[in-house]
Write a protein that binds this DNA or RNA. Structure first.
Lengths: 232, 232
DNA sequence: ATATCACGAATAATCGATTATTTGTCCAAT
DNA sequence: ATTGGACAAATAATCGATTATTCGTGATAT
């Protein structure tokens, strides 16, 4: 089939490995594969109608991002997060994000303020659950949630710090996917609103405090859940 | 030549891609390739006596680590750090590392103290420059330097935070490789000693302050140097 | 009955060759 | 002289097949 895999749309001129990478990434984040499941290049190659090389490249990239494990000579697998691992990620976020938030609040300009408002508005108006998408957060809400948190930090103006946030967020969401049950007793709405208010009021102390609290609650909500694997 | 590339030693039973990856990584960090130089899979494959696939895998991993750039359909290249990029990395380190150091000082146990002492001893006794290795820091000193800084933070006990440190250190060293001239007017010895003392005295405030200062001086020493590329 | 080893299927890792894209060059047209 | 376009390398991306390793199975020896 060579290169002609873009049967339908017009701009579809991407590297195959990129497409497969994006697809696999979504699948893993969405939980299509169970933790510790093997990711067999052959099967994936067949599914996507591509050669081993492109699947392999996608998998190697995933490993670099922490979205797949590599067992030398034994292939690739979906990472099996332990409870400990999850706590470590949460702690790292609690350690770093409040500091970056302070920097963001100190430096953010009017454009940043506007984007924070916009992101919060979208988040507040997006339903966290929809019946069609199973028992988990809707993908629209998850994305709005990510964008809100990221936007809050973007005022810092430092891409390196934002990359760090991105990495930790990804790890966090992956762990959450296999841990989080609905926790209806959680006032996420209110927490986000207070976060927005403090940020826009340039109240760095309060904002950092609320964020730390927010992350602590998130961590607490996810301990001792099913699907947990033993530590490596 | 198939697999039989391990002609000499006994345990040498690693994936080819791993070997090539390690080799390439060292070469880039050592500055064997100039910034923005193309990393041509074909040439590299010939040099290492392997196929394109393994070189490609190594390059993809490097890209994930920020040690190579990828230009879609135009191959791989050594990253060309701009002055701005360097400043961003330095700022990120100043933002994060003091916080982690505080955590480390609060939590580190006796074993950690011992390892800090050992790491500092090794660093202090390793010559920063040797005539044989050109005008740059000796590789032994660079490694001792990394180990000292990392050991200082390892008391925090959080692998996620340490991974973050590792990433930033790598980026930092790569940028430094192309920026740093010898700065003989820099009292690195003294700074490291004060860092060790404050850490072992469990004086988190002083230690964090000294570290921030240390990183600020490092950043200042590297601005406006040659080899700089324009911003992307 | 249990442990050990040979064998074979499954799959990981690598290779050599093919297809696509970019890039440089030469020539014609303005 | 400069712009635009056809061609021809060079090289990136992908493929299909080959080699190597692991893992399960069953025969054999204790």
């Amino acid at each position: 089939m060579t290169q002609t895999a873009h049967a339908s749309n017009s701009p579809g001129k991407q590297m195959l490995s990129e497409q497969v990478y994006a697809h696999l990434r979504n699948a893993i984040m969405r939980g299509d594969h169970a933790p510790a499941d093997a990711l067999k290049p052959q099967d994936l190659a067949k599914e996507h109608g591509v050669s081993l090389a492109v699947v392999r490249e996608a998998l190697v990239r995933l490993v670099g991002e922490g979205l797949a494990d590599r067992l030398p000579n034994r292939g690739f697998a979906v990472p099996a997060f332990s409870d400990r691992r999850w706590q470590e990620i949460a702690e790292a976020r609690r350690t770093i994000e409040p500091v970056v938030l302070r920097m963001s609040i100190e430096r953010g300009d009017v454009d940043w303020e506007a984007r924070v408002r916009a992101a919060h508005h979208r988040l507040a108006r997006t339903p966290a659950y929809v019946p069609e998408e199973g028992e988990y957060y809707s993908s629209a809400w998850s994305e709005a949630h990510r964008v809100f948190h990221r936007t809050l930090l973007e005022g810092c103006g430092n891409p390196v710090l934002l990359e760090t946030f991105d990495r930790m967020w990804t790890a966090s969401e992956l762990a959450r996917r296999w841990a989080a049950q609905r926790t209806p007793d959680r006032d996420a709405l209110g927490e986000h609103r207070r976060l927005e208010e403090a940020a826009l009021a340039r109240d760095a102390d309060t904002a950092a405090e609320v964020l730390a609290q927010h992350l602590t609650l998130t961590a607490a909500a996810l301990t001792g859940c099913p699907h947990q694997a033993k530590d490596a």
